[in-house]
Every structure is written in C-alpha cells, then in structure tokens.
Amino acid sequence: MARVTRSPLDPAVFLSEARRDGDGGLTLFVGVVRDNADGRKVEAMEYEAYEPMAEKEMERIETDLATRFPAVRLVMRHRIGRLAVGEVAVVVAASAPHREEAFAACRAGIEEIKARVPVWKREWGPDGSVWVDPLQPRPKHESC
C-alpha cells in the first residue's frame, strides 16, 4: 500500500503490520481531524500532497529513522483528500523489542512527517476555507 493514500486508514492494520514476534513493545500515533482550531469551528480538513515527492520523503524518513533506531520497525501512512472530523489523517506505528525505542521512534516519525513531507491542509468551517500555515497565527476564514 502507498504511504500517501486517499483510502481511509485503519490504525490497527498498521500496528499489526509493524509487529514482529521478537518485539515486546508497540506504540501508535494516530492524528485525527478535530472540530476546532483557535476557537473556530472546523467541519473538515482537505489534505493535498505533492504526491510523488511525499511518497519518496516518507521513504527517506523511514530510511533515516532505521539508522537512528535500528531495532525498530516503523510503518507510516498519511491520508489525503477531504476528511471529516474524527477521520484518521496520519498513522505512525512503531514496534521494538522494548518500549523506550518504540516510543522514541514513533515520536520521531510523526515529527519528521510534520516537518518534511510535502502535504498541506485546507481547513473548512461554516464561513469558508483557509490554508493552514504551521508558523503563522491562523487568519480568519476567507469567504468562498
């Protein structure tokens, strides 16, 4: 399955995909769409990717983290398209012999995704939509 996909993500699938019989600790990060942002109501998030590069960047993160955390098996997925509140946008599953590495690699995985993978999201609310800028205070909705 592609790492960047329009299909719904079931976290349990990726947890079992990450697990190996020699592992005793698994961690899972699940990012979902929430119903608010800076006091505004959010109805949906529309995710867009530079798809071929996003796929490669996810692979490069996996390669980098395999060097940093050699005992860990990571499975990472990002969904794109229009997602309703509560739908899963991103999953990072980490499996390791022991919990410390599983927690650390899982955390590193989601932080790298947020920092490096060319994905953007447009927030939809009652008054229209706005592109989310991770560094700027969020502007009010522009009318659409």
Binding site: G31, Y47, A49, Y50, M53, A54, H78, A89, V90, I110, I113, K114, A115, R116, V117, P118, V119, W120, K121, W131, V132, D133, P134, L135
Partner: peptide, 10 residues
C-alpha cells in the same frame, strides 16, 4: 522543479 508553501501535514 516545484515551489512549495511551508508544509502542514499531520
């Protein structure tokens, strides 16, 4: 070549 706004995934 692609020009990309600051990424905002997750």
């Amino acid at each position: 070549v692609a020009f990309l706004p600051p990424v905002a995934g997750g």
